[in-house]
Write a protein that binds this DNA or RNA. Structure first.
Lengths: 240, 240
DNA sequence: GAGTGGTCTAGACCACCCC
DNA sequence: GGGTGGTCTAGACCACTCC
């Protein structure tokens, strides 16, 4: 089960193994796991290595530990990875909808003061402005506008935008998106927003602004979205 | 600086020490930290202990590490502790408002099917229903209704509610609140909500439903809140 | 090659829970 | 008292970055 001369770290192999048992249902919520010393003995590895795997799973919300008693499978999985840092496409799939997208604007513009501030770049520096209507099961769900520094993310095309911007940034450019912050507000639709979303003027909408950053803190992207409140709820799980 | 024969773990002392340097501004965003081996040498502790402290700070978003280069202070602090799991009082203080509260209902009622489901208890089991208008700088900000199982949290009084329910649960009952999930929606105020919040009927509002759980997954509390959208934004930071 | 973080070992003692 | 997780040590070798 655990390969010792693998380029994949042992703690990671053990982590994935236990995660699989939980997702298979072989380990059920409330079940206790073998003791750390048992794992160490069974796989002939150090207890510290076992702890490294278990600690990660505790942080991800799969397990919880009680000193003197043992390690147990958590009742609920908390803090799904990528929670909120998913793309619209991933988010909709997770909700059981068929995601769709209609590009209505793709241009390079000089940054306004507001955009420059959000992206930590100079005013008038070139940024991509990408406006899309996002669909779920072919019904408009959100109106989304992305601003991305053209000096940081070079070579963006309509084609890439229709595939996946994140894959391009992470795959082709080798940059790592690490953190994001979001601001969520309630409002009511004006005429333009109402038309785009096929709702009535004055209907409730949810405004979400997202800023994403690389691991060193460089802003990558700044997104303003308008969601239909009758079809969208924002969900979040957290640990204390 | 680091006390070795203290009941406080060494890794935790180091963690707090570094956190303080960052919050004091002695370590600025982008600064590199001393190498792990330097800390180990300086405090005569094991490098693994140093790593335990640093790993925690990386997870909390204070630091980031780059293999072969070093450990650096993050540009932004991500994932504030307790984010969203704070009480209204803590939340308002963090935003720079003076929190206030007006109790308008405090009763024990039999659980409806909906409440029983959220709290994983039997229908008709006794639950506290606590309704409050929450103020920020003496202006109504939210209308909040809590449901708490009376069999789990015994001895709640109006007095405790006016102090802090969380302190009572954690301090007096010795229970540990570990996780929470929230659902955020946009809507528009009906007449009752409008009156309570001193806004007009039809104004945008934000509905937040929160479920909190103990470390073993037992539901503790179920809260429905109605926030004024003109004065409240929900903010969240996350790591990938 | 020198310096950094990443992984790993084989122990040790402590704090806590339960019988 | 026996079993559990929590903390800690003093090393080791590897992978990566930079010069």
């Amino acid at each position: 089960m655990i390969k010792k001369n693998s380029p994949i770290p042992i703690y990671y192999q053990l982590e994935e193994h236990i995660k699989e048992l939980i997702e298979n249902g072989e380990l059920k919520p409330g079940d206790s796991l073998p003791a750390e010393r048992v794992y160490a003995e069974e796989y002939k590895i150090s207890r510290m290595t076992v702890r490294q795997a278990l600690t990660q799973l505790v942080n991800e919300g799969y397990l919880h530990r009680i000193q003197g008693k043992g390690t147990f499978v958590a009742e609920r999985k908390i803090m799904q990875p990528l929670q909120g840092l998913t793309s619209f496409t991933e988010d909709m799939k997770a909700r059981g909808f068929k995601p769709g997208s209609q590009l209505i604007r793709f241009e390079v513009i000089p940054a306004t003061i507001q955009i420059a501030d959000q992206l930590s770049i100079q005013e008038y520096a070139p940024v991509y402005e990408i406006k899309r209507i996002r669909m779920a099961d072919d019904v408009p769900m959100a109106l989304e506008t992305n601003y991305i520094s053209a000096n940081l993310i070079k070579g963006l095309t309509e084609n890439i935008v229709n595939q996946s911007i994140y894959s391009y940034i992470e795959g082709h450019l080798g940059l790592k998106i690490e953190t994001a912050s979001q601001i969520i507000e309630s409002s009511i639709a004006n005429q333009i927003e109402a038309n785009s979303l096929s709702i009535k003027k004055g209907s409730p909408i949810m405004l979400i602004q997202r800023n994403t950053y690389l691991e060193n803190g460089t802003p990558v992207e700044f997104v303003k979205s308008v969601y239909r409140a009758d079809r969208y709820q924002f969900m979040i799980q957290m640990k204390r």
